[in-house]
Simulated scan of single mutants.
Amino acid sequence: MTKHKIYTMSFASVYPLYVAKAEKKGRTKTEVDEIILWFTGYSQEELEAQIEKQIDFENFFTEAPALNPSRALIKGVVCGVRVEDIKEPIMKEIRHLDKLIDELAKGKAMEKILRK
């Protein structure tokens, strides 16, 4: 089975799109980073290093220090697909992160986005 194209895309190529989406709606890069750090367990320095070395999406998630167990609480639709129904693990993580960035752009409070 062939890998999805997104798996081999560099996280660094998509990260600015996450930031732009958030900033367009009055949110900040700091909030985007907070979401990514909460979700993956990376430190700010580790996140910046992953971006700098152009790591692909698949390895970005497989190398994540500690995927947050509360990510299982993320529900909803992204790109027409219900995230809780996605079976493939890496795709599920990618779509979970997409959903969190969407929630940020829609003005949801950080406490709710981070499932506190």
Score class of each variant (00 low, 15 high):
4 H>N: 09
110 M>Y: 00
97 L>Y: 06
110 M>C: 07
29 K>Y: 00
60 F>S: 08
53 K>I: 12
60 F>G: 13
1 M>I: 00
6 I>T: 03
45 E>Q: 12
114 L>G: 07
37 L>T: 13
25 K>F: 03
69 P>V: 08
90 I>S: 10
19 V>I: 04
37 L>C: 11
53 K>V: 09
66 A>D: 12
31 E>G: 09
87 K>G: 11
102 D>W: 02
64 A>M: 02
55 I>R: 14
9 M>V: 02
35 I>L: 05
107 G>V: 00
64 A>C: 08
103 E>M: 14
91 M>H: 04
44 Q>L: 15
102 D>H: 05
39 F>V: 03
33 D>V: 03
47 L>G: 15
59 N>Q: 14
115 R>V: 13
20 A>H: 05
63 E>D: 15
15 Y>M: 04
103 E>L: 12
25 K>V: 00
109 A>S: 11
30 T>N: 01
29 K>L: 03
93 E>C: 13
4 H>E: 03
98 D>Q: 12
51 I>Q: 14
7 Y>P: 09
35 I>S: 02
64 A>D: 10
47 L>D: 11
108 K>S: 07
107 G>M: 01
26 G>I: 01
82 R>M: 04
115 R>K: 15
42 Y>L: 13
51 I>N: 05
63 E>I: 01
27 R>A: 07
99 K>Q: 11
68 N>T: 11
108 K>E: 10
37 L>R: 07
35 I>G: 06
64 A>S: 14
12 A>V: 09
48 E>N: 12
61 F>K: 11
93 E>W: 00
43 S>F: 09
5 K>E: 04
38 W>R: 12
4 H>F: 02
53 K>F: 04
82 R>L: 06
35 I>H: 03
116 K>M: 10
18 Y>E: 05
39 F>K: 08
56 D>H: 13
19 V>G: 02
99 K>S: 03
21 K>F: 01
21 K>W: 00
36 I>E: 08
112 K>D: 14
1 M>H: 07
55 I>M: 13
110 M>R: 02
24 K>P: 04
15 Y>S: 03
103 E>H: 07
50 Q>C: 08
26 G>M: 07
8 T>Y: 00
116 K>I: 03
28 T>F: 01
55 I>H: 14
112 K>S: 10
80 G>R: 13
53 K>M: 14
43 S>E: 12
56 D>K: 13
54 Q>E: 14
24 K>M: 05
7 Y>F: 14
42 Y>P: 14
37 L>A: 09
5 K>N: 02
16 P>M: 04
87 K>Q: 15
55 I>N: 14
87 K>A: 12
70 S>F: 02
6 I>A: 07
67 L>I: 11
52 E>W: 00
3 K>R: 10
5 K>H: 02
111 E>D: 13
59 N>W: 06
9 M>N: 04
75 K>Y: 06
85 D>Q: 10
69 P>M: 04
64 A>E: 14
27 R>K: 13
51 I>T: 10
45 E>R: 15
66 A>L: 11
36 I>F: 02
64 A>K: 08
15 Y>T: 08
95 R>F: 09
17 L>C: 07
107 G>S: 02
85 D>Y: 03
30 T>I: 01
10 S>T: 05
7 Y>E: 09
93 E>M: 09
85 D>C: 01
106 K>H: 10
66 A>P: 10
70 S>P: 08
113 I>H: 06
17 L>Y: 01
24 K>G: 12
42 Y>V: 06
93 E>I: 00
5 K>D: 00
